[in-house]
């Protein structure tokens, strides 16, 4: 499997605090990788570094064949990386439909497209995504009036709208009711299998990660603690200790 995303020795410091410490991480084309760790372990900071929202202090990041270490976020997005955020980022004053319309692939748009209204093909895609996410009845509602779970779904839709190669999902199930979580998992798998979209998931819901991902990376105190299949990770004494603060039964 060729590496779509390849981070090497990524370091991010905030003053004296090293939030991300020499992390290596790769995601292959069409792969689903989980990124887990206790609160404050640096998962979201690493996401911000990978998507170039934050500059890194050391290391390198490659994506889709390009060295994106010094790219701006919109360049990365145009290369095919999209993401959601831990604290949901939708455009509250715009309608649900407008939120999706604005999340298209801007790279392919010329001046004519920029200064025209949304084309029929994009609107069809918006409608299809809204059906897919079960948000069709809220099409013309302001995004700011949606519930937390609905906004989470909308944000996932925005991430999928640009036909990405890789989606970084930051706690996609947070605030979403359990029935919907299963739905989201099904939909992500569908997108992954049908369109070959790769996913990197930050999650606290370990079962969700285990159901979806072939490989899981564990962070603790900013550094990589473990990497393996979900089954290997769940049995790893170091991971159990990081999560529960005590040595695992039988561990030495």
């Amino acid at each position: 499997m060729t590496a779509l995303l390849e981070a090497r020795g990524v370091v991010k410091r905030f003053g004296g605090l090293t939030a991300v410490d020499q992390v290596d991480l790769s995601v292959g084309t069409g792969e689903m990788v989980g990124l887990i760790g206790p609160n404050g372990s640096g998962k979201t900071t690493l996401f911000d570094c990978l998507s170039r929202v934050l500059d890194i202090d050391a290391g390198s990041i490659g994506f889709n064949g390009a060295d994106i270490t010094r790219y701006r976020p919109h360049h990365v997005a145009r290369l095919g990386m999209s993401r959601t955020f831990q604290l949901i980022r939708v455009y509250p004053e715009l309608t649900v439909s407008e939120n999706l319309e604005l999340s298209i692939q801007w790279e392919r748009m010329g001046m004519r497209g920029l200064f025209s209204r949304t084309d029929a093909a994009t609107l069809r895609k918006v409608d299809s995504l809204l059906e897919f996410l079960q948000l069709a009845r809220l099409r013309d509602e302001r995004a700011g009036t949606l519930s937390g779970g609905q906004r989470r779904l909308l944000e996932i839709g925005m991430a999928l709208m640009s036909e990405p190669k890789l989606v970084l999902l930051d706690e996609a199930t947070s605030g979403v009711n359990p029935t919907l979580v299963a739905d989201i998992a099904d939909r992500l798998l569908e997108v992954n299998r049908n369109d070959g979209v790769a996913f990197l998931l930050v999650e606290h819901n370990v079962q969700f990660v285990a159901d979806l991902c072939e490989r899981v990376v564990v962070l603790n105190h900013g550094a990589k603690l473990a990497e393996g299949t979900p089954q290997q990770i769940m049995r790893d004494p170091a991971v159990i200790e990081a999560y529960f603060g005590a040595k695992a039964e039988g561990a030495t």
């Binding site: 919109h74 993401r83 715009l94 604005l102």
Partner: peptide
């Protein structure tokens, strides 16, 4: 789309940048 992009910047500039 240009006008909508301006509103997107007002609503959430980092989000807009991250969406291309």
């Amino acid at each position: 789309r240009f006008g909508s992009a301006l509103v997107a910047i007002r609503e959430d500039e980092i989000g807009a940048e991250m969406r291309g």
